[in-house]
């Protein structure tokens, strides 16, 4: 598949200079935001964020509470509409992609796990079912095993702990085989022993499927363990993006 370079990058000259090796031709799965902004009333939740993220890359998003990290992620799968700027997926403006198709390709695990009433297996199969596909039970079992929930397939979601629900939500998004994985504090409800396991799992799957991954985290060590680059946000703005160690130690 060939990707055509975007014709213009208005006001984004600085971007290409910052990442000359990734200039115009992005590999599939790559994600780029251009002056991405969302404003509600007079309030800027996300303000003029321009970043380029390559295929297979893991980028961490850090910043104080209320910095706009979740708001930024919600723009990336178009759960919210940018008030200005846009997102390119494989160099294609995401507004030209049907929202349902876009959201399958850009999967998101939200900060809070909202599961659907019913069994764990029904939750895992939800995404494929939207496209008329039935996820084979073996796949469901395998996915659950990977997130450390072997034997949970037929459990009712009403009896899950917070950490279990969070992992079901992760497996549910992975069942959609997304190209880009957006994770909003995916281990916030897990204890330290489980955190490492889930990090390994995410790293493994991202590598295996060559997924692009953006992970919001409050945990510096987690950013260091997982992300090659880190973006620091404050008050809706992108303060800096660069190699994780540099960004974290500058702050």
């Amino acid at each position: 598949m060939t990707t055509t370079a975007p014709s213009k990058d208005p006001g984004g000259a600085g971007l290409s200079a910052q990442f000359p090796e990734r200039s115009e031709r992005l590999p599939p799965g790559a994600l780029e935001t251009r002056h991405l902004s969302r404003q509600i009333g007079g309030r800027r939740l996300v303000s003029d964020v321009s970043v380029q993220i390559g295929r297979g890359e893991i980028v961490a998003v850090v910043g104080p509470s209320g910095a706009g990290k979740s708001s930024f992620l919600r723009l990336l799968n178009r759960l919210d509409e940018p008030t200005s700027g846009t997102v390119l997926l494989q160099s294609i403006d995401y507004r030209t992609i049907a929202p349902q198709e876009l959201r399958r390709r850009v999967g998101m695990v939200m900060q809070t796990a909202y599961l659907f009433p019913g069994t764990v297996a029904a939750n895992i199969g939800f995404g494929p079912r939207q496209r008329g596909q039935v996820l084979p039970h073996d796949n469901i079992v395998a996915l659950l095993e990977r997130v450390g929930l072997a034997g949970f397939a037929d459990r009712d979601i009403g009896h899950l702990s917070g950490g279990e629900a969070q992992r079901v939500a992760l497996a549910r998004t992975l069942a959609n085989a997304p190209e880009v994985l957006l994770l909003d504090e995916p281990t916030s409800a897990l204890d330290e022993a489980l955190v490492r396991g889930i990090e390994e799992l995410i790293l493994g799957i991202v590598r295996e499927r060559q997924m692009t991954c953006i992970i919001v985290t409050h945990n510096r060590a987690q950013a260091e363990r997982m992300a090659g680059r880190t973006m620091l946000m404050e008050a809706g703005r992108l303060v800096t993006i660069g190699p994780t160690a540099e960004v974290l130690h500058a702050g």
Partner: peptide, 8 residues
């Protein structure tokens, strides 16, 4: 929104 996020 979880359902929308999964492409529903």
């Amino acid at each position: 929104e979880a359902a929308l996020s999964l492409g529903a």
